[in-house]
Amino acid sequence: MTQLTSIGLNITQSEALTKQLNTLLSSYQIQYMNARGFHWNIKGRQFFELHLKFEEIYNDLLLKVDEVAERILTLGGQPKHAYSEYMSLSNISEAQGISDGATAVNNLLAGFEQLISHQRIILAQASEASDEGTASLMSDYIKEQEKLIWMLKAYLA
């Protein structure tokens, strides 16, 4: 007999999703810190517009960090919370010493592309587990980030 979590999902599938979500959480944390660093360190002719855009991006990322962590808890897992764990699990690399606008935007683009790729994997896994909560969250994030990628690419064109 299959054992279920308190929210009616298969325990084994929920544990697998929790593992994937912790990797996603780690990637979000690194993307957040990268965006925050770009906000602080941006220089040049595009300072004002990029300074504001990076703030908008890191504020959104911070909300998603909290939502992903809470989803992990909802599934019965424990969200990672140490930067050493984030660095070892993240699919996104830490960016350092970047103050050029185009370089910063390209770095964020690469990070968002990685997030979308990983979120598609989680979406498929959540759908297979009949986990509508996680699937819905991933679907919303993918939709938002696809538009953001389009806008950032248009900015660079």
Rank of each mutant, 00 (worst) to 15 (best):
Ile121Leu: 13
Thr12Pro: 05
Thr103Asn: 11
Asn10Ile: 06
Ser6Thr: 10
Ala35Ser: 06
Ile30Tyr: 00
Arg36Phe: 06
Leu61Val: 02
Ser90His: 04
Ala110His: 11
Asn91Asp: 10
Arg71Phe: 02
Ser26Lys: 04
His118Lys: 13
Gln31Tyr: 03
His81Lys: 12
Glu144Leu: 12
Glu113Asp: 07
Asp140His: 10
Leu9Phe: 07
Leu24Arg: 00
Leu25Val: 04
Ser99Ile: 11
Ile142His: 00
Ser99Lys: 03
Glu56Tyr: 09
Gly101Tyr: 05
Gly97Ala: 07
Gln119Ala: 13
Glu49Ala: 11
Glu49Asn: 04
Arg36Ser: 05
Met87Cys: 12
Ser88Ile: 13
Phe54Tyr: 10
Thr5Arg: 10
Met138His: 00
Gln31Val: 09
Glu70Arg: 02
Asp100Phe: 07
Asn41His: 06
Met87Ile: 15
Leu52Asp: 08
Ala95Gly: 10
Ser84Arg: 06
Lys143Pro: 10
Gln3Lys: 09
Ile122Gln: 00
Pro79Cys: 13
Asp66Thr: 10
Gln20Ile: 11
Leu89Glu: 13
Glu67Val: 13
Leu73Asn: 04
Met151Asp: 04
Phe112Thr: 11
Gln145Pro: 03
Ile122Arg: 03
Asn106Pro: 14
Glu113Leu: 13
Phe112Asp: 15
Leu63Thr: 15
Lys147Pro: 07
